[in-house]
Design a protein around this nucleic acid. Structure first.
Lengths: 213, 213
DNA sequence: TTATTTTTTTACCATACGGTACAAAAAAAG
DNA sequence: CTTTTTTTGTACCGTATGGTAAAAAAATAA
């Protein structure tokens, strides 16, 4: 069990949750492999044996950090899926993603992307976990869109898989742009353009204007 | 000078261009820091002193690799900018990016993104180079769009900076989706949706449908 | 006080990293 | 053949990495 509330023995000199939050921010900024143990211990204000006693090892600490990430900085995702219409879902998703990736009080971008986008063979397991998380997110999007389609929100020829991938492109693309320095304002404008595209794509006959003379 | 054509001395046992191509592929797949010198020497078929004699060091080798990357796998970018209309430019850009990120004969994604998206402090100079490259690409996009606007292709209220950022989101987002496993076909569908969005956004009055009762 | 439990501190371990010195090898030049 | 020039192979260097052993310190329990 992680929740150690035993009153016996020397008490911990640090707050486990706050230390995890600090670890999250370092991993977020430098990635899994770019983060060294001294980076972690310095940010968390503890030393190595304390880290290992409380969190297992570097990889397990990272896994706990992405769990925290999903609940807090990336917490807009699940509520967005619960919106009553696909339009409201897309709106919350796009503007939530734009805001999350460019929050001035946190590292820029998305941990699911930059945590281990490309890495050495040693970190392949971590990379695979993040790939699976991204896949799962897109699948949830697709299923939400298919429900909307079944409920008659979309035209009959709408490709929900492609549309889910399109939304994934927006979220991940905005996160890259945020690391490149795009402002929160600019990303909101991009989200607005993407939302219009979403509306157009869901109202059927996704025709590329062919009659451009 | 890199181009050493001296006929004197022991001849090189490897082809410099082919070795650089191999190095590019390793960097592309594992990123700058995720790639070790043994990774490089094995892929290139040479040993460390030969690598250092021919390319300087790991960082200089990486810089030469991204130069090659810009000319070959990412070679669709500059020609797209030269298209006569903004529409044709966007079309070539989006479909070119979709194809490049999912080419089955090469690593997935975009080296400009995954070469050093997040990294340790040691690699900060390389990360900064890639950030600058991405910024420069978006600026070229913006300037091309501004030219199109000046030539009367767009409505008066079109925000070329936001539109350039939107295109950057598509290119970088598709590259992430490619590393996550998206097929070339799926990315083409996404590119088509994005191209429609581009058309809509350039024909003025980017109105979010507010009258949705 | 003494014994027990847990955390902290310090010091260390094996391995892998980027990079290089040095001598052997392979070619052309004299 | 000898000299000169350049590349190759091997062996090595200092440092940083993730991880741990062992003792000191701080709390409770008896």
């Amino acid at each position: 069990m992680t929740g150690n509330t035993s009153t016996i023995g020397r008490p911990r000199a640090f707050d486990v949750d706050k230390a995890l939050q600090k670890a999250l921010e370092v991993f977020w900024e430098k990635g899994y492999e770019g983060t060294s143990l001294p980076d972690l211990t310095e940010a968390m204000g503890i030393n190595k044996p304390s880290l290992y006693a409380a969190f297992g090892n570097k990889e397990q600490l990272f896994l706990k950090a992405i769990e925290l990430y999903e609940n807090r900085p990336c917490g807009f995702f699940q509520p967005a899926l619960l919106q009553p219409t696909a339009y409201l879902m897309a709106e919350q998703m796009l503007f939530g993603g734009a805001a999350a990736s460019s929050d001035p009080s946190l590292p820029k971008g998305c941990l699911m992307v930059q945590g281990a986008l490309s890495c050495s063979d040693n970190a392949n397991s971590v990379k695979q976990v993040l790939i699976e998380k991204r896949r799962s997110g897109e699948l949830q999007l697709q299923q939400r869109l298919e429900r909307a389609k079944a409920e008659g929100e979309f035209a009959a020829d709408v490709d929900c898989a492609a549309l889910a991938c399109f939304l994934g492109v927006q979220l991940h693309g905005m996160s890259i742009q945020a690391t490149t320095g795009a402002s929160s304002d600019k990303l909101q404008k991009v989200a607005a353009i993407a939302l219009e595209a979403f509306v157009a794509a869901t109202s059927g006959k996704a025709a590329v204007p062919e009659s451009a003379s």
